[in-house]
């Protein structure tokens, strides 16, 4: 994270010199500069207030997860627990299925991410560089498939998973998520942007298509692959609806499903807010780490998934 070096007010005034010159009088110049200062102060204040508003739910969650239940209910706004307690986290990790959910989420996320990196780059490379009959049709189909809203597929996908006897298994959780038209699209665009001369040279040396792909092209594709990793990790870690429709046994609960159930079920049996917020905090940590590590890339491409 880095502060953006703000342009100083005097620099700004220098840029505005011609404006003031046109306006004619020194009085107007001074008035304009003062107004500018006031405007940028107001802008800065607004930015600060908004940033605080966006961050405060997360700060409150972290603070509340270290409170007692009574404290959480009595002082919902306070950022400092009356007495700091790790009771919520101890209960989560020692006395609940939370570690199991976490492990399941990790297994699914790693498998989906690895699978997507491989499949997306293979397919993207074929679409970008390997001329085969029907490539245009495949490409058109890909675009069409991307347009289908995911919620519409909720029930249909269950029907296939059920027919393939993958319901209630890790395969049912993982394999359907490997289908990733958008990722193929990203990889195709990337491969089209790199010059073909390198591959040509390797091909002249007698390397087959897979060899060229694996040892020449793929190492060059690191930036695009990182994008796929970010999107896949975030997407599968945060996925909920697919897991709801693909499994039912408690041994296969992921974090999203488990915490959603915790939230829904516990509504009737007391609030347990520190526990729920602790769970929310812990499940946010891996994506938060990913976000801060790859922040520059995420912000530059604007490739963050749109939330529904």
């Amino acid at each position: 994270m880095s502060f953006v070096p703000a342009q100083t007010v005097s620099e700004q005034a220098a840029v505005e010199q011609p404006v003031a010159g046109k306006a004619g009088s020194g009085k107007a110049r001074r008035g304009r500069a003062a107004r500018h200062k006031a405007a940028s102060f107001a802008g800065g204040l607004l930015l600060l207030v908004l940033a605080l508003a966006y961050v405060s739910p997360f700060l409150i969650s972290v603070a509340t997860s270290f409170k007692t239940t009574a404290d959480a209910t009595a002082h919902p706004l306070s950022l400092v627990p009356e007495t700091v307690t790790t009771a919520a986290y101890r209960k989560l990790f020692l006395n609940s299925d939370f570690p199991l959910w976490f492990a399941n989420s990790a297994v699914v996320t790693v498998a989906v991410t690895a699978g997507r990196v491989l499949l997306d780059s293979l397919a993207g490379y074929a679409l970008a560089r390997l001329p085969f009959r029907g490539r245009g049709v495949v490409y058109a189909a890909l675009v069409a498939v991307m347009a289908v809203p995911s919620v519409v597929l909720l029930i249909p996908r269950f029907l296939v998973i059920n027919s393939l006897q993958m319901y209630d298994s890790y395969a049912g959780l993982i394999v359907p998520l490997l289908a990733d038209a958008a990722g193929i699209f990203i990889m195709k665009n990337f491969f089209e942007s790199i010059p073909p001369s390198v591959e040509e040279a390797a091909r002249m040396d007698g390397a087959g298509p897979f060899r060229v792909f694996w040892s020449v092209v793929l190492p060059m594709a690191r930036p695009a692959l990182i994008t796929i990793v970010i999107l896949s990790f975030q997407g599968s870690w945060n996925e909920l609806s697919h897991f709801i429709t693909a499994s039912q046994s408690p041994e296969l609960f992921t974090l999203t499903k488990g915490v959603a159930q915790l939230s829904a079920g516990a509504l009737s049996q007391g609030t347990q807010y520190p526990l729920k917020l602790g769970a929310a905090v812990v499940m946010t940590v891996p994506v938060a780490v990913l976000f801060f590590v790859f922040q520059r890339r995420i912000m530059n491409t604007g490739a963050g998934a749109v939330k529904e």
Partner: peptide, 22 residues
């Protein structure tokens, strides 16, 4: 002209990457 724009941008974007359940 505004200071701390990078931090603010991070703050605004962060909710987008977190899980809808959380």
């Amino acid at each position: 002209v505004l200071r701390g724009r990078g931090l603010a941008r991070t703050a605004f974007y962060f909710p987008s990457v977190t899980s809808s359940v959380a």
